[in-house]
């Protein structure tokens, strides 16, 4: 079975976000970029399935500007076999990403597609579900446990009230939650080996996908600020402030 893993280059999770002065977006100039944390978990899961002998090949895909290749290389160092970069300078909406991935799933005849449940920049939580819809595959979203057996994927999902387990016919789409695994670090020899692995480059045109979107971002603004309050000296003072000043208890 071949596993396709979709990964995204995003602003590093620990970086403080700055909104541009003209409210056109977030300032990413010289910002530290990284593999989206949920995508790293997806790569790790694919590598573990390969180590268990349940996958033959791991193909990692990223869509975006040229610099995405850094993140693809990172994933190759973590154990993916080869990369595909769909190059575009347009910032794509999840529907366009899902359409591109759908073409690649068909082309590669992937038996399982792994994605993160959401990217920490746009916070959409859509691409996996959309890909499943377009390809007619079943979906196991927010996975915290994944077992593959007898042509099926058994997925335990994190839901609001607890956990739910579903069984999906393969091929299927699975999106990862934080609890699925703990991603490994790339070792130096593996980073060196990753340089020899291939990354194919394609464009949305070559895949025959129209990436235009009905969605337009009118403005991006900082949220209303929340000013620091006061420090209280004791539990008594805290209770009295909550009662008389804030009136919340």
């Amino acid at each position: 079975m071949k596993i396709l893993v979709a990964i995204k280059r995003v602003l590093d999770a620990n970086v403080k976000v700055r909104v541009k002065a003209d409210n056109s977006g977030v300032d990413l100039t010289n910002a530290k970029m990284a593999v989206n944390p949920f995508c790293e978990i997806a790569v790790e899961e694919a590598v573990r399935l390969k180590e268990k002998g349940q996958a033959d090949e791991i193909v990692v895909v990223s869509i975006g500007e040229k610099s995405c290749q850094e993140q693809i290389r990172t994933c190759l160092a973590l154990g993916a076999d080869r990369g595909i970069h769909v190059e575009t300078d347009t910032e794509l909406q999840p529907l366009a990403v899902a359409k591109l991935l759908n073409k690649l799933v068909e082309k590669e005849e992937a038996g399982l597609v792994l994605l993160g449940k959401q990217s920490i920049d746009s916070d959409n939580n859509q691409a996996g579900q959309m890909l499943a819809a377009l390809s007619g595959m079943p979906q196991g979203t927010f996975a915290c446990k994944l077992e593959i057996a007898d042509g099926k994927a058994k997925v335990t999902r994190e839901i609001d009230g607890g956990e739910q387990t579903v069984e999906l016919n393969l091929p299927a789409v699975v999106t990862t939650d934080l609890r699925l695994n703990e991603p490994r670090y790339a070792s130096l020899p593996n980073i060196m080996k990753a340089k020899k692995k291939t990354i194919d480059t394609l464009t949305p045109d070559e895949l025959g996908v129209d990436v235009s979107s009905g969605l337009k971002v009118l403005s991006v603004e900082p949220p209303p600020g929340r000013s620091a309050g006061i420090k209280v000296e004791s539990v008594d003072e805290l209770i009295s402030k909550l009662k008389s000043e804030a009136k919340v208890i």
Binding site: L11, K16, V17, V19, V26, I120, D121, S122, D123, L215, K216, V217, L218, S219, V220, E221, P222, P223
Partner: peptide, 10 residues
């Protein structure tokens, strides 16, 4: 977006 650190009007 960005963990609530920006608000996008779409």
């Amino acid at each position: 977006i960005y963990a609530g650190n920006a608000l996008a009007t779409v």
